[in-house]
């Protein structure tokens, strides 16, 4: 499968990456090389094979439903680029 430039732009937007015009073509070429390599997987017969998301995890452990952490407002905010009134600040999203 090959990606056209519109698809590259669409994927970039989904990933919230800004691709300047001059970067679109090189990105398209790289992605197509990688996808071409990945296309080898089509040679493998996987009809009845069940997909796995991970390994060595026979059972997901359960933990007690109890609060074990919290009250860390300062620790959470300490790395934030912009803070006001104990909240993260972002550009206005509602008019």
């Amino acid at each position: 499968m090959s990606l056209d430039q519109d698809t590259v732009k669409r994927i970039a937007h989904l990933a919230r990456l800004k691709l300047s015009e001059e970067r679109i073509k090189p990105m398209q070429e790289d992605l197509n090389r990688i996808l071409h390599f990945i296309d080898q997987l089509n040679e493998v017969e996987t009809g009845s094979v069940e997909a796995i998301a991970g390994v060595n995890m026979p059972i997901m452990p359960m933990r007690e439903d109890r609060v074990t952490d919290g009250d860390k407002v300062q620790a959470i905010l300490q790395n934030a680029p912009e803070v006001a009134c104990n909240m993260f600040v972002v550009p206005k999203v509602v008019e």
Partner: peptide
């Protein structure tokens, strides 16, 4: 970009699910 593409609607089965099977 590759990751977003293989997880995007219409390509998830062909790439991501396929790879999980392999």
């Amino acid at each position: 970009m590759i990751g977003t593409y293989v997880l995007s609607a219409g390509y998830y089965d062909a790439y991501y699910l396929k790879a999980q099977k392999v």
